[in-house]
């Protein structure tokens, strides 16, 4: 058994609550601050400097997924528009099919793997892949799939095809739906 071919995944989800203030301060979102101050930095406009809020994050467990416990290609990938992460109407049937698969195989789970094309920048693409995977997870939640049945993973543009046609590039803007047998 080749160790390098193993994927590890969460088995035990330990809720780690880090210390900090419980009262989360209101602060303007990026959208709210977007309009003005388009030119240059004006330090006097920066407000609410002191209170970094507590973070509630769940640590990744040490559980393992064996490659042989993954089924790739049975469920179709969900495609996205350039720089977008909303689930298009035409793609929703694929998530419905994933839901039906889980109903028929209640012992299985899904790994939602987000991807981006190679244009843009690596770190931002990692975020975009993350957002796409979470959009798929959120849509599955809306149609009744329990959140614990899905794991998300972003690969950003790390596996993107670079010497392809624009059609091949659009194939990189996707979420793979991988079945986890355990």
């Amino acid at each position: 058994m080749n160790l390098s071919k193993k994927l590890f995944i969460v088995l035990a989800c330990t809720l780690v609550v880090f210390t900090g203030c419980l009262k989360k301060p209101q602060r303007p979102s990026v959208e709210q601050t977007m309009g003005g101050q388009g030119t240059g930095l004006n330090p006097s406009d920066v407000s609410g400097l002191t209170d970094a809020s507590a973070a509630t994050l769940t640590s990744r467990g040490d559980g393992v997924i064996e490659t042989e416990d993954m089924i790739k290609g049975l469920l179709k990938p969900v495609y996205f528009d350039f720089d977008k992460s909303n689930i298009k109407e035409g793609e929703r049937a694929k998530l419905q099919a994933a839901k039906e698969y889980l109903e028929q195989h209640p012992e299985h789970r899904l790994l939602l793997e987000g991807h981006a094309d190679w244009r843009g920048t690596a770190e931002y693409n990692l975020g975009l892949g993350d957002r796409r995977a979470n959009a798929a997870k959120s849509y599955l939640g809306k149609i009744g799939v329990t959140a614990t049945k899905n794991e998300t993973l972003s690969k950003g543009s790390l596996e993107a095809k670079e010497k392809g046609t624009s059609e091949e590039m659009s194939n990189d803007r996707r979420v793979e739906i991988i079945i986890l047998k355990k």
Binding site: R27, G38, L49
Partner: peptide, 11 residues
Amino acid sequence: SGGGSQRVGGG
């Protein structure tokens, strides 16, 4: 330490 963000970049 967080707080409000200022857009920069000069368009």
